[in-house]
Amino acid sequence: MPPTNTPNLRQRRLGIELRKLREHSGLTSTEAANRLGLQQARVSMIEAGRYPVSADRVRTMARTYACTDEALVDALTAMTGRRVRGWWEEYREHLPPDLIDLAELEHHAIALRVSLAIHIPALLQTPDHARAMLREAVPAFRAYEIEHRLAHRIRRQTVLHRTNPPLYSALIHEAALRIQYGGLETARAQLSHLLALSEESHITVRVIPYDCGGFPGNGQSVNYLHGSDPHLDTVQLDTHHGCDFLDAQAQLGKYRTILDRMEAVALKPAATRDLIAHILRSR
Rank of each mutant, 00 (worst) to 15 (best):
2 P>N: 04
2 P>C: 01
10 R>E: 06
13 R>H: 07
15 G>L: 12
18 L>W: 03
18 L>S: 00
19 R>I: 06
21 L>V: 01
23 E>A: 01
25 S>R: 09
27 L>I: 10
31 E>N: 06
34 N>E: 14
36 L>N: 06
40 Q>C: 05
40 Q>P: 06
44 S>L: 11
45 M>K: 13
49 G>C: 11
49 G>S: 11
51 Y>M: 12
57 R>E: 15
60 T>G: 13
63 R>G: 07
66 A>H: 10
66 A>C: 06
71 A>Y: 05
72 L>K: 05
75 A>R: 00
76 L>D: 01
77 T>W: 07
80 T>L: 04
82 R>G: 03
85 R>K: 11
91 Y>T: 03
92 R>M: 07
94 H>P: 05
107 H>Q: 15
107 H>W: 14
113 R>W: 14
116 L>D: 04
124 L>I: 03
125 Q>F: 03
127 P>E: 12
128 D>R: 08
132 A>Q: 10
134 L>W: 12
142 R>Q: 15
150 L>Y: 01
154 I>K: 10
159 V>L: 05
169 S>K: 09
170 A>W: 01
178 R>K: 12
179 I>R: 15
179 I>E: 15
180 Q>F: 03
182 G>S: 12
185 E>V: 11
191 L>G: 03
200 E>V: 02
202 H>A: 08
204 T>A: 09
223 N>W: 02
229 D>N: 15
230 P>W: 12
230 P>D: 14
241 H>F: 11
246 L>C: 07
247 D>L: 04
249 Q>N: 07
250 A>M: 08
272 T>H: 13
273 R>P: 07
275 L>S: 12
275 L>F: 12
